[in-house]
Amino acid sequence: MLKQQIIDRRAAEGPIIAVSSLSKSYTQRKKDRTTTIQAVDSVTFTIERNSIFGLVGESGCGKTTISRLLVGLEKPDAGSIIYNGSDIHNPSKGKRKTAGKSTAGKRMSMQVVFQDANSSFNPKMTLRNSLKEGLHNRKIRGAEAETRIKRLADYVGISSGNLDKYPHQFSGGQKQRLAVARALSMEPELLILDEPVSSLDVSIQAQIINLLMSLKDEFSLTYLFISHDLGLVGYMSDYIAVMYRGKIVEQGPWKHIMEAPKEAYTKQLFSAAPFLELTSGV
């Protein structure tokens, strides 16, 4: 990543992403009746640059649907997502601030790391080729691509000699590191981390979290961090939103949410979660 790019990022102003009254529903047809599930129900939030926005909630509350809407894997029923000044799903509506950059180009600067690293890599491709794919799309080939891949592997602590292996030859933690490397290859500004560590063991989980925190500072990244682990979200996030049945029931700075939640649901969620707040030498 170019130094100038990072400096530009630090100088950029305004929120990186502003979501307003976003809604998405899914319809299910069963014999003669149809049921509609409101997966995301007029959700509004903004993510500030260089911050970590934690999205918590139980399974089925719509966390992942939001991430799919943000990267454009789903189209919203209503509402808008303004990313760096322009509307992702309706480019003409937004401000023409980033004119000239295609929607695809903008989407490249938003990358996702999924929960299950196993299913996010092509099992028939070596990791080197998986990492190369994104670079090829950006017309980076040959020696330049190789140097970049080596550098990416260094960033995430994988020896580049290992990259000619296939996904099944790596452990879960290594695969998740490589998934982060692949996301970084697109020089993203915003990383969507959808439960990136929940399938990993605690010691490996801690290593990945340390990696994510140092990469964030190094590249001035912004994270949307989706998780059901409240301790982890409280550790990482600057801002926290709590989702329940498609709605954001409460959002605010982490301290407000963790220490003085107002909504009944947030309180219930926090009282149910076992926390490990320990003091040494009792």
């Binding site: 010691s203 490996i204 925190m213 301790g231 550790y235 490990l276």
Partner: peptide, 23 residues
Amino acid sequence: IGLLNSVPTPSHRGHKLDAVKGT
């Protein structure tokens, strides 16, 4: 000790997790 140090909680904010090294 390494396992306990690996668990992230709000009170560890701003500090690197002292994780068990290696795999």
